[in-house]
């Protein structure tokens, strides 16, 4: 270190080389799976059998992508992963809107309208966030069965709203608490009611935390497997469940190129969101980590 400080442009110290070597090895470790997936998805089965996983495709072939999207088989049906994609979209949009809005209302009410029971309910909600879904599953299945909604789109949306509530409530509450009390008090002096303050003052100020909340929920709901498997019903199985069915319940020879194309397609929505949202994604992680 001391050498590089004296002659920063002439000598590269061993420590510097070591730093970059370590980071490079790490980068290779993290990038390798995505590289293998991409390369394999552009190969024909012929080429996969003869070559290695790290080789580049000799002539990029889109056949596997087309088949993965529209003709890959999950058990008996061979309609491709596109069915799961659209199911996931239908689950995602209402779930995200409802859970973010509810989280915003909860967070606002808890931050500025303290009253009895609110603190206790919030504490229970936060504790609930740590508990594995397996503890809730059976009673929820029974409740949905009684109400006649088990295995419907409404059920899976409700479940996502329920399990999204702790983190959504938490991050909005923390955000609204940081808004100066004076703004809120001034509005109330002017006679503004609960909803007026919320829609006219709080919501317009909460764009940054909205973005964080939406990223968090889109990623979480799109990547969910176990809740979709249990509650969505046969007709609405999300993309992750379909992907697992395509890959893990195949008969005959496994088509690795189709499997990998289907896997990339399933990972695409959160990946694109991650690459375009950049630091917002990290902000979301930090905001959600507060619960730890």
């Amino acid at each position: 270190m001391s050498i590089s400080e004296r002659r920063p442009w002439k000598t590269v110290s061993p420590a510097r080389i070591g730093t970059y070597a370590f980071l490079l090895v790490c980068a290779l470790f993290f990038a390798m799976p995505l590289f293998i997936m991409l390369m394999t998805s552009f190969k024909t089965m012929e080429e996969i059998r003869s070559g290695s996983i790290f080789s580049l495709p000799s002539a990029p072939d889109l056949g596997a992508w087309v088949k993965a999207w529209s003709a890959a088989c999950t058990g008996v049906a061979c309609d491709g992963i596109s069915v799961g994609f659209w199911n996931s979209v239908r689950i995602l949009i209402p779930s995200v809107i409802l859970s973010v809005l509810l989280g915003a209302v909860n967070g606002y009410a808890l931050a500025h309208w303290n009253f009895r029971w609110a603190g206790i309910a919030f504490g229970l909600l936060m504790t609930g966030a740590f508990i594995p879904h397996q503890v809730y599953v059976y009673p929820l299945v029974q409740l949905f069965a009684w109400s006649g909604t088990f295995g419907t789109l409404a059920a899976i949306i409700a479940v996502h709203v329920i399990f999204g509530m702790p983190v959504m409530t938490l991050i909005f509450r923390n955000y609204f608490v940081s808004i100066p009390e004076e703004i809120f008090k001034a509005a109330r002096m002017d006679g503004a009611g609960f909803w007026w303050v919320f829609f006219a003052i709080m919501l317009p100020m909460s764009t940054p935390i909205m973005i964080v909340a939406v990223i968090w929920q889109v990623t979480g709901i799109w990547n969910d497997f176990v809740l979709g498997l249990i509650f969505a019903g046969r007709e609405n199985l999300p993309m992750t469940v379909q992907l697992n069915n395509i890959v893990n319940s195949q008969f005959g020879e496994r088509e690795y190129n189709v499997d990998m194309a289907a896997t990339i397609l399933t990972a695409l929505v959160p990946l694109v969101l991650y690459f375009i949202s950049g630091r917002w994604f990290v902000r979301g992680i930090a905001a959600g980590a507060v619960k730890g």
């Binding site: 980068a27 990038a31 390798m32 997936m37 697992n244 893990n248 499997d259 399933t266």
Partner: peptide, 24 residues
């Protein structure tokens, strides 16, 4: 670039993670 590479797996589901590593 390094941070992006190190963190992107976290955006993917455990299902995708498991399937990829199963092949590798």
């Amino acid at each position: 670039a390094l941070r992006t590479i190190f963190l992107y797996p976290h955006a993917m589901s455990f299902i995708v993670t498991g399937l990829v590593w199963q092949w590798i």
